[in-house]
Design a protein around this nucleic acid. Structure first.
Lengths: 229, 229
DNA sequence: ACAAAAGTGTTTTCCATACACCCATGC
DNA sequence: GCATGGGTGTATGGAAAACACTTTTGT
C-alpha cells in the first residue's frame, strides 16, 4: 500500500503534553521510544494524523492508545513546523496539552506495550525531537490560563479541599498565595460548592471537601462572568 | 513530477487573517479565488506549505506573493483540521493573523494577478471553506491580546496621536473608553513617548504625535513589567 | 496536652472609574 | 469669534494585599 501525490507534503503528527497532579507536584507523561530516531529516548505521546481524522481526534486516539487515557481535558497548544525538528524528514506536529488528576488513576498499560511513565515536571530527562520546547510552551500556556479559566479543577479530584487547591495554584503559578485571600475569592465563586463530606485519613482536623459545579459555572459564564484568580 | 508515500497524508496549508486599520475602521484582506473549489468566492490569502519550509515562512511567503506584504506582524493563530473543511480532500490549515497599518500603504498587485481587496471587518462577504470560523477566532484573539500585549501599535503608523490610538482600542474592544483615563495609563508607560512633531492637515488644534519605543518596552518587559490596558 | 492543619475578619493601600472645563488652532 | 477636537486633575468606591489567632481533630 502506498499513495502518490503531485507535490511532496510534510508529514503531519500530533504530540500531547499530558500534565498530571499528584499531591502537590505536577507530572508529565512520557513514552520511551522503541524505534529510531531517538530510539530509547523519552518523548511525548503522539503519532501520525490519519487522513479523514481531525487533529483533535488524532490526539484523543493517541492518548487512548499510548496511555489508556480517555475523557480528559485536551486543548490545542501550538503547531511546530521547523523543517529540521525531525531528522528523517519534514514533520509538522500539532501539539496538544491535557490535564488529568492522577490521584487514584492507574497508568494503563499501553496497547502497543510501550513503556510509559510519569516524570516530575521539574525533573525531566532529555527529550526526543523538539519536545522540550513543546513542554515549555505548554507550561507557559497552563500558567497563563489557570488564572482566567477554571482549568485548575481538571487537575483536582471531584472532591477536593481548599488547601489542596491552593497548593496546586501555588505550584502552577510558582508563587505562594495568602490563605485567607485565596479562600475569600473562592467563597465568592458560587460554582465552588461545599459538599457535606470531609477529608479522611489525616492525622489532624479534617478539611471540608468542595466540588466544582460545572453547570453553575457555565450559567454564570453566559451572563458575562469571568473567572479570575 | 510526483511523490509517493507509504501512508496517505493530509495536505497542509496556511491561511492568513490580515487585519488592517484605516482611519478608525478595521479591514480584512481577501483574495478572490480563481480556481475551484469556491471559484469566484472571497477567501483568506494562503496556500500550500512546501516541504522544508516552516509554516511561519509559508505564511510570510504567501503574504508576499498574494498581497505584496512583507515585514508585518504575523503570529500563529490556530490549526484547523476538520476533514471536511475542504471538499476536495483532507486539508489541514495552520492559520495565522497579521496586523498592518493601512494608512499610506498601497495594496500591491498580487504577483499572480489575483484580485485582492480590503473589506470592512464588520461587512464581510461570504467566505470560502471555513474561513469565516478562522476570522472569528482571529478577532477573538486580537481582542483578548490587545489588552495585555502591545500589538495595537502594529496597526498604527509610526507616529500617531493619542486620540487615534484610543479610537483603535475602542474599535477593537467594541467599547467606549474614557479619554482621561486612557491617557493617564499611557502616560505611565514610558515606552509611549511624545515626538517633537504635531499632527498636520487638520482643521482644529493639532495633536501631539507619539511613537512606540520598542526597545524601552523590551527592557521593561524583561524586568517583569506587564502591558495592561 | 500537644502537634498539625483548618478556618476565619479587619485594616490599609492602591487602582479603576467617573466626571467637566479650558486651550489651541483653522476658518 | 466660533467650531472643533486637544489636553488636563480630582474625588470616590471597590478590590487586592497584608496580616495572626482560635478551633478541631488525632495521637
Amino acid at each position: 500500500m502506498s499513495t502518490t501525490y503531485e507535490y511532496p507534503r510534510p508529514a503531519l503528527t500530533v504530540d500531547c503534553v499530558v500534565i498530571g497532579r499528584d499531591e502537590s507536584t505536577l507530572k508529565l507523561l512520557l513514552i520511551r521510544r522503541k524505534l529510531d530516531p531517538f530510539k530509547g529516548s523519552w518523548a511525548l505521546p503522539g503519532g501520525f494524523v490519519r487522513v479523514g481524522e481531525s487533529t483533535d481526534n488524532a490526539a484523543k486516539r493517541e492518548l487512548k492508545e499510548e496511555a489508556g487515557l480517555a475523557n480528559v481535558f485536551l486543548e490545542q497548544l501550538y503547531t511546530f513546523s521547523s523543517p529540521d525538528r525531525d531528522p528523517r524528514e519534514h514533520v509538522v506536529s500539532v501539539a496538544y496539552y491535557a490535564l488529568v488528576n492522577l490521584a487514584g488513576r492507574e497508568l494503563h498499560a499501553s496497547t502497543d506495550a510501550e513503556e510509559a511513565a510519569w516524570f516530575e515536571l521539574t525533573k525531566l530527562p532529555k527529550l526526543a525531537f523538539d519536545h522540550k520546547d513543546i513542554v515549555r510552551v505548554a507550561r507557559e500556556r497552563v500558567r497563563a490560563k489557570v488564572r482566567y479559566e477554571p482549568i485548575g479543577f481538571e487537575l483536582l479530584p471531584d472532591k477536593f479541599t481548599l488547601t489542596s487547591m491552593q497548593r496546586l495554584y501555588e505550584t502552577v503559578l510558582e508563587t505562594p498565595l495568602d490563605k485567607r485571600n485565596f479562600r475569600k475569592k473562592l467563597a465568592e465563586m458560587d460554582f465552588v460548592v461545599a459538599t457535606n463530606e470531609i477529608e479522611t485519613g489525616v492525622t489532624h482536623r479534617p478539611a471540608q471537601l468542595y466540588r466544582f459545579d460545572e453547570k453553575k459555572y457555565q450559567a454564570l459564564q453566559k451572563r458575562g462572568f469571568n473567572f479570575d484568580l
